[in-house]
Design a protein around this nucleic acid. Structure first.
Length: 570
RNA sequence: GGCGGUGUAGCUCAGUUGGUUAGAGCAGCGGAAUCAUAAUCCGCGUGUCCGGGGUUCAAGUCCCUGCACCGCCA
């Protein structure tokens, strides 16, 4: 399979994500995308904003904007931050697109045709003042249990008791404060996931190579209690995909929209169609990624997400795909992540705790964050961000080991031989280094193929260290005094090593890699043959000495950030 | 209350289907070198693998139990 389809869980439109969100989906997805492109494979890397639902409506109202304008603006903000982190999406779509609307309605129609949609009448609270139905959590009142006066319709945060909105005393709308509420009957559509339980179970059971985090969460939902439950896929809202059966009206569902979790994963497909539209491509150009009857059988499809998104991607979305009875591409591998904690607690969007993506970029270039986050990715268990650890790791790995290697080699060369690759033969120590590097690079590739992010980072670091070890024992600065030609061979190898590092490191630290490629005045072809790769830069090849790749984080800086980010975001 | 997860060196973490003296990076200590961003390289770990039982020739690795922290659900 030389075509790889990669999707990252799509971030909600409401606000800017924190570093924990980033490392759980978009960043490792980008790492994998860049690696595969580096290996010469055809990659389609898709992400988007998840724009529908009540939180977006309320955030827009708070900002005094129509919800569509609000989303358009926030999409722009998130896209800009993604560029700042060098997330190399082929397309960053929007779940509110016409493409997604049509596809979502199409899937709903097919599911209905196949008897997988059930219409259910239920009771829900309607607010006359707001002119809308209110989700349970947007109804406030006094808790009948403990008397707390800001209990929510789904749960009292004070005594943690689960509530029904009708339990609340003096219930009022959390949106407007109005007490003019009424319980009304309303009809909703349910996706009959329970009818597909066995099929999903068999599918998941066959995925022995998936991370246990992924399969264990899926199995839990499949087998816990009464097993996989049907889920409502519609809501009484204005902002969303209107409920339709394909392009036909759906009697009795007028004025309702599909619930976000139904339309959000369909956006992976729709965003690829958006990509085609944006680039003047034909439908066949996106369908070859998604329709197994149009070439997608040759595609390897990998999804990246945090563990909170696993149920939707292992059960709900596959139920949608399978239930359509159409030849859509199912996911081949789901890479899931645990949570990243922040300095002893959790990152929290709602509480504004931790470092958010825009703030991170204000402080330091993307490469610093990319390197630390990926080399500490929460793969096997939750992991922890601390400022001391961040400072030490980044200073040591990036500035001291990699950056300083480049600096010492290029500056030594400039002072003794000038800014061109010197002419000198390779001896035993150079061959020995190549012999050490070759299995290391193969191991690095293996970890990248397996999406073992931390292991890949560790191997890459070891490859950087090998250069310093070599240089230290070869000691061209000493050899030069007696045998300049021998020293020239050592430096020629070291300059080629810099090029090698740039190529290998690009998925982790793309900006620094690009700087090195430019400085070395060379290309970024992958080192399939390490020996040959050590001979790309020929004697006489001109280069320039780059500025220091990474400046170090000073203690005072770290302390300042520590203080600045100790509280909550404004 | 139920279910699940985690608990390994000062810190962040690896430890495959139970099998030799439990590992890595960072920090710390000692040394070498001086090309380089006072960077680099070499050497140095007697850790109750949370506590307590148990299975086994053999357990960080399996079972039971207690404790701590964290999730999810009622």
């Amino acid at each position: 399979m030389n075509r790889i389809l990669i999707t990252s869980a799509i971030p909600y439109i409401n606000g800017i994500k924190h570093l924990g969100n980033l490392v759980g989906s978009q960043l490792p997805a980008d790492l994998y995308a860049r690696y595969n492109r580096g290996r010469g494979r055809e990659v389609m890397f898709i992400c988007a904003t998840d724009e529908h639902g009540t939180p977006a409506e309320l955030a827009a109202a708070k900002a005094g904007q129509p919800v569509d304008e609000f989303c358009a603006e926030m999409h722009g903000v998130q896209a800009e931050i993604a560029r700042g982190f060098r997330l190399s999406f082929d397309h960053f779509g929007r779940s509110s697109s016409a493409r997604n609307q049509a596809l979502t309605q199409h899937f709903a129609g097919k599911l209905a045709e196949n008897g997988l949609i059930e219409e259910v009448v239920e009771q829900q609270v309607y607010s006359h003042a707001d002119g809308r139905f209110l989700p349970d959590r947007y109804i406030e009142g006094t808790c009948p249990n403990c008397g707390y006066d800001k209990a929510r319709g789904d749960q009292c945060e004070n005594c943690t008791k689960q509530l029904d909105p009708t339990d609340l005393i003096d219930a009022r709308s959390a949106v407007s404060g109005s007490t003019d509420l009424e319980v009304r009957e309303t009809k909703h559509l349910y996706l009959r996931q329970s009818a597909m339980k066995d099929k999903l179970d068999a599918w998941i059971s066959a995925k022995a190579d998936w991370p246990v985090l992924t399969t264990s969460i899926a199995k839990k939902w499949l087998h816990d209690g009464d097993g996989l439950q049907d889920r409502g896929i519609t809501r009484d809202l204005d902002w969303g995909v209107p409920v339709k059966k394909g392009d036909q009206d759906w009697p009795g569902m007028e004025g309702k929209v599909f619930y976000v979790w139904f339309d959000a994963p369909i956006e992976y497909i729709a965003a690829t169609a958006e990509w085609a539209d944006a680039n003047g491509k034909a439908d066949a150009d996106w369908q070859r990624w998604w329709r197994t009857d149009m070439g997608a059988d040759d595609v390897k499809y990998v999804q990246f997400m945090g563990k909170d998104n696993v149920p939707f991607h292992t059960l709900s979305f596959p139920a949608t795909i399978m239930g359509s009875n159409e030849p859509w591409k199912l996911v081949d591998y789901i890479k899931s992540f645990n949570y990243l904690n922040y300095d002893g607690g959790q990152f929290s969007t709602s509480q504004g705790r931790g470092v958010f993506m825009d703030q991170a970029l204000e402080i330091l270039p993307a490469d610093y964050w990319r390197w630390w986050l990926l080399s500490h990715a929460p793969e096997n268990s939750d992991s922890e961000f601390t400022w001391e650890n961040f400072q030490q790791s980044v200073n040591k790995d990036l500035a001291d080991v990699l950056g300083n290697f480049v600096s010492r080699v290029t500056k030594f060369c400039r002072s003794k031989f000038g800014e061109a690759v010197p002419d000198g033969a390779y001896g035993d120590s150079e061959v020995a280094l190549i012999d050490e590097l070759t299995p290391r690079i193969r191991a690095y590739e293996g970890h990248m193929e397996a999406m073992d992010v931390r292991k890949a980072a560790n191997e890459l670091r070891a490859i950087w260290v090998a250069g310093n070890e070599y240089l230290q024992s070869a000691a061209p600065w000493s050899v030069f005094k007696e045998n300049p030609e021998r020293a020239a061979g050592m430096i020629r190898l070291s300059l080629n090593l810099i090029r090698l590092y740039a190529v290998l490191s690009a998925p982790f630290i793309p900006d620094a890699a690009a700087t090195l490629i430019t400085a070395m005045n060379t290309d970024d072809a992958w080192p399939d043959d390490v020996s040959a790769a050590m001979d790309v830069l020929k004697p006489g090849h001109a280069f320039t000495v780059p500025d220091n790749l990474f400046s170090k984080i000073a203690d005072e800086e770290r302390e300042g950030w520590q203080a600045r980010f100790s509280g909550v975001r404004d």
